[in-house]
Design a protein around this nucleic acid. Sequence first.
DNA 1: TAACTATATATTGTCGACAATCACGCAAAG
DNA 2: CTTTGCGTGATTGTCGACAATATATAGTTA
Lengths: 220, 220
Amino acid sequence: MTFEAITNADKTFVQIRSDIIAGRIESGAKLSEPELSTKYGVSRAVIREAINRLAACHIVERKANVGARVVALSPEGLIQLYQVREALEGMAARLAAENMSADEVAQLQDLLVSHKSSIAGSESYYQEAGDVDFHYRIIMGSKNEQLINVLFNGLYHLVRMYRVQLGMAGPRVTKAFDEHLHIATAIANRDGELAEILMRRHIHYSKNTIESLLNNELKG
Amino acid sequence: MTFEAITNADKTFVQIRSDIIAGRIESGAKLSEPELSTKYGVSRAVIREAINRLAACHIVERKANVGARVVALSPEGLIQLYQVREALEGMAARLAAENMSADEVAQLQDLLVSHKSSIAGSESYYQEAGDVDFHYRIIMGSKNEQLINVLFNGLYHLVRMYRVQLGMAGPRVTKAFDEHLHIATAIANRDGELAEILMRRHIHYSKNTIESLLNNELKG
DNA sequence: TAACTATATATTGTCGACAATCACGCAAAG
DNA sequence: CTTTGCGTGATTGTCGACAATATATAGTTA
């Protein structure tokens, strides 16, 4: 998920991306190259390369001779992201049931055991890192390079950005944990069909939760 | 699908991509910046930007301080691409049945009528452009921005590259046409569930055809 | 002879400057 | 008063040069 940032352009890319996802650079803002150049203390060429990568992840949009803007965040956009996730991660769960090694399956279950105890204590940890960890392992377990690329180099950072900026620090912790448990069991039983169904429902529920949150926000 | 190439970097990107997909730059080859700079008659900065975009489409892979190489083409990679396409375009067909305007549905059916006549004459045309056109309209008809981005900015060019370089100028013309017809009918009837099933089978068949072709090649 | 080191070369990463293009504001005409 | 055209200012696109890093070669030693 996280990759080794070697060059300055790498580090600047990670930095700016983090600033955008966390909302320190707000949605719709223009990314002026000279401005960012002084702000991050690197040359314009470095900023330019960083912006190019952000555009590749669809975090910003570029227009020729005009510049780059952070993507506009609509509630519909977040819903669309979850639709794609549902299709892709459902498939990932099926493939994981077929292709994960016994070791990887065991590690997946160990992960859930440690999550169970962390839920008893402070739940807040689980929501972010734990959820990502679980999904990460399943996606990697699919052993499908294309799938891994699409999800990690594109969709996941977008999801985080939308969630942060639309204020979805959602609950759904304990219910999600149970769903994770069922998915892991299906994978351990090598039941790809069930694993896919459960994963799709898991993400579908998240989507529904978010939709109702958005609706409440519009009404309130 | 095709976008307006304004700047030099755009044109160079399109040019190099085309050269790679057509096999004029072969799989696994190293993309030397100074070399390409003289070859295409532009500065290194332009080449660099073009290579960055190729990397964003996963057509080339970059390593820091080492350079970029055209991705290695394994038969498994092509199969994995088709797996992802099956999930994504199946979903696109369902969404298209729900979201396409009456006009767009009519245009989709018109397209098939013109394909029917072109099949009677020279089949060869249909295979390439016709197939792409059909799938293109359905994906656009899904109205899901994320889906559109993933498929057009990444997967489609990769599929073309794999097919060309692994020598899959495949047949399957008339059968594919019938399948297209059924899918379009399901969409016209606003039957998303059926449209998804038919589209998944359609792509699955293509995958199977390719798999057996690859197997024959290994044996022969 | 094989393996390790050091140098040399070529390639990538980064920089600052120049050229091309666009956005904004103002003026003038309908 | 609205609209069209121009000019100014700023931003992006492009270029060539320099610095940092990796690969290849040659030399040395066990």
